[in-house]
Design a protein around this nucleic acid. Structure first.
Length: 289
DNA sequence: CGGGCCTCCTGAATGC
DNA sequence: TGCATTCAGGAGGCCC
């Protein structure tokens, strides 16, 4: 599932393959993949056609291609979205929803998404949080931990104010962006915190340890090209990541904890799975459940 | 206003 | 063997 390291890996590939090039034609498939572009697919294509891509950017799990029109092509990969840079004669994969060709006749950009939780849209660039120019739909998203403007003090103040559990907060893109189910579980394991721990009870050293874990796991996963868990995530050039080999808890139900040997446990939480070591991450006695 | 549940979707895996 | 059910989850909508 594409979280920050996966989206950043894709962004780097798209930037290498697409930056500086001018769109010469746009093909769109299923409408659902463009549902966030309110003006419809015809408008989508006409805003993109003839535009030159000036760069590829990212905040959290959102990425966008800045255009020479003060607008941006925003891509969210959802659960199963892929952005591929491929030669025009490469076979069209099932669930291909967009093909964007360029005036130099070189490699094209394709959007493929099995579950269509992701999608593409064109949006104006506006002033976002932490003094960054971002597309309209990204304006409310918090900085991610790898951004210069990320502030642990801001996050700590927000956590103090909230009445919720720590994992729910980590997954909230308005608190900190880029973290999904895999890296939330991995970070909590590194900090020896249980997912249900009440945010307002976290002490400063605990929050610091947690975000040291967040930072480390995101950087390590990025260095590994991301986590390819269900085979759906690949880079823009079709390469799988290998961080799945380094996971400590996610997807390791019943296997030994790498720290203490206790069997990793899986709980249902927020309609999804949470993986913990019951010994390293005991359920809080006073924290909310 | 904010916390948290629900929904969208497809295909692999599992159940009977 | 085949059909039905379960499971995976990002993020916005919506309810209380």
């Amino acid at each position: 599932m594409p979280e920050l390291p996966e989206v950043e890996t894709v962004r780097r590939g798209v930037e290498l393959g697409i930056s500086g090039r001018t769109v010469s034609s746009v093909w769109t498939g299923r409408d659902r993949a463009f549902r966030r572009h309110a003006a419809g697919v015809v408008d989508f294509s006409s805003r993109l056609n003839g535009r030159t891509v000036t760069g590829a950017h990212r905040r959290g799990k959102f990425m966008w291609l800045a255009l020479d029109s003060d607008e941006a092509l925003v891509a969210h990969l959802g659960m199963s979205g892929q952005l591929l840079v491929v030669e025009p004669d490469v076979e069209i994969a099932k669930h291909t929803h967009a093909r964007i060709e360029f005036s130099d006749g070189g490699r094209e950009l394709r959007f493929i998404d099995q579950r269509t939780f992701g999608g593409l849209q064109i949006e104006p660039l506006v002033q976002g949080r932490a003094d960054r120019v971002v597309p309209l739909s990204v304006a409310h998203i918090a900085p991610d931990p790898l951004e210069e403007s990320f502030s642990l003090d801001d996050v700590r103040a927000d956590l103090k104010r909230r009445k919720t559990g720590i994992k729910r907060a980590l997954l909230d893109q308005n608190l900190v962006s880029g973290i999904g189910n895999i890296y939330a579980d991995e970070s909590l394991w590194r900090a020896r915190l249980h997912f249900a721990r009440a945010t307002e009870t976290l002490r400063k050293p605990e929050t610091e340890l947690l975000f040291a874990g967040v930072d480390a796991v995101l950087r390590e996963a990025l260095a590994a090209g991301g986590t390819t868990f269900d085979g759906l995530y690949i880079s823009a050039f079709g390469v799988s990541g290998y961080f799945d080999r380094e996971l400590d808890v996610y997807g390791r139900t019943g296997l030994d904890c790498h720290r203490c040997g206790t069997q990793i446990r899986r709980d249902e939480f927020m309609n999804r799975s949470s993986h913990t070591c019951p010994k390293c991450q005991p359920r809080p006695r006073n924290g909310r459940w």
